[in-house]
Amino acid sequence: MSFKRVILLILSFSIIVGAVGCSSREAENPDAPDSSQVAATIGSQKITKDEFVFYLKNAKRDMEQLSGVYGKEESVIKKFWETKVAGEDPMATAKEKSLNALKELKILLTHAKSQNLKLDQQSLDKIKAHMDSIVKDHGKGDQKKADKFTQETYGIKFSQYEAIYKDYVLAYEIFVKKFKQDLNIPDKEISDYYNNNKKTYDRVIAKHVLISTVDSEEKELPQAKLDEKKKLAEDILQKAKIGTDFESLVKQYSEDPGSKDKGGQIQAARGRTVKEFDQWLFSAKDGDFGLVKTKYGYHIIKYIKRTTFDDVKLEIKEELENQKYNAKIEEWLKDPNYTVKPNKKLIDSISVL
């Protein structure tokens, strides 16, 4: 499993719950589900029907979004689920994805329990705040309405939703965070990685104001408007050159939503921006200001610096942590102790639609 896959899993869950979350309910819970409500087992961990339904809803939404049918009329969505792709049944694929995601979760929970990890107060407070927000926003302050919302949206009761959310936090926030911290990656390993991948981390930090020259459909504006935009860009450049606070110019004029709230700051690697912008960035030096025209408009740019090892050290450390974590996940997923034993009869009875 690639780290990208892990991120997608986390983001996917985040879209559903608005945050991430965990506590395993099996060993200590006298009300553990009977066998008819167990969708699968993974090692000593059980996957309940509720958990499977929740993750199946998750997989369903993800697949519909990736295919471009999400939110469309019922007939279009129904056709998607009834059409095999390269001989694969999308419904079977969704169920497989759900089991794979739950397998990873249960493996992490197994290791979290072996280390006696529990939800800390900060996590509990965040979980409570999220659950309260569901009651407020979707239940209009009524617990019963909130329960109806989770059942209609996720196929499970409000309390079951909370339990799954808690499990997710314990696994992906508490355990994974500790796993990475415990790696204690030495500085030499970080510097060696940097030296072996300098091109990747050779970037320019700059700030810019974008004066857009296209309309909402990305069509170029009429010539008269273009002339006005160019004049405005030239005026802003002059203000920047005489010492006007650049971030105030960004706040007042910039039409780039991706950088405006960050004072116009960007960090770009060579070849990763449009040609004109890229050429200016990598030929500029300390103290330079520039005016560059691209297909997006006029960019008033302030060169800040070329990145150094210190600028990217933390990023590299996190990259190495992710690589090692990902390698360990791959190892655990292949471990026969974590073989998935599905309750085929139960799983087959659960509809994707």
Rank of each mutant, 00 (worst) to 15 (best):
F149G: 05
P186D: 15
F80I: 13
S159N: 12
I134G: 01
D147W: 07
K103S: 08
I127K: 04
Y154C: 06
K103V: 04
A146C: 04
K78H: 11
K166R: 14
G68D: 05
A86N: 10
D132Y: 04
Y70Q: 13
L117N: 09
E88K: 14
E152K: 14
G87L: 03
K84M: 00
S75R: 05
I164L: 10
Q181P: 03
E73M: 03
D125V: 01
M91R: 09
T153R: 15
L99Q: 11
Q122D: 13
N184S: 14
L170K: 13
K106D: 05
L170V: 01
A86Q: 10
K177N: 10
S67L: 02
Q121I: 03
T153Q: 15
S191V: 10
K144Q: 09
V85Q: 09
T153L: 03
S123F: 01
Y193C: 07
I185V: 10
L183S: 13
E96A: 02
S133N: 12
I174F: 00
P90V: 01
W81F: 03
K148N: 03
M91Y: 03
S133G: 04
K128I: 01
M131Y: 04
D192R: 09
E96V: 02
Q181Y: 07
P90S: 08
D167C: 05
V69P: 02
D89V: 01
D182R: 13
K79A: 15
K95G: 05
S67E: 13
I156P: 00
K145A: 02
A171P: 13
M131W: 00
G68I: 02
T110H: 14
M91I: 12
N184C: 06
F175V: 01
L102R: 10
T150R: 10
G87I: 00
S98G: 11
D125G: 00
H138K: 15
G139W: 08
L99K: 10
L109Y: 09
V76P: 05
H130S: 08
Y161M: 07
L183T: 02
D120P: 02
K180W: 02
E82W: 00
K136T: 13
V69L: 12
D167S: 15
T93K: 13
S67P: 02
A171V: 00
K95V: 01
T150S: 05
K145T: 09
K145R: 12
L117D: 09
M131F: 05
E104C: 03
S191F: 07
A101T: 12
Y172D: 06
Y172P: 05
A112S: 10
P90D: 12
M91A: 11
G139K: 09
K118S: 06
D142V: 02
D167Q: 15
L117F: 04
L119V: 08
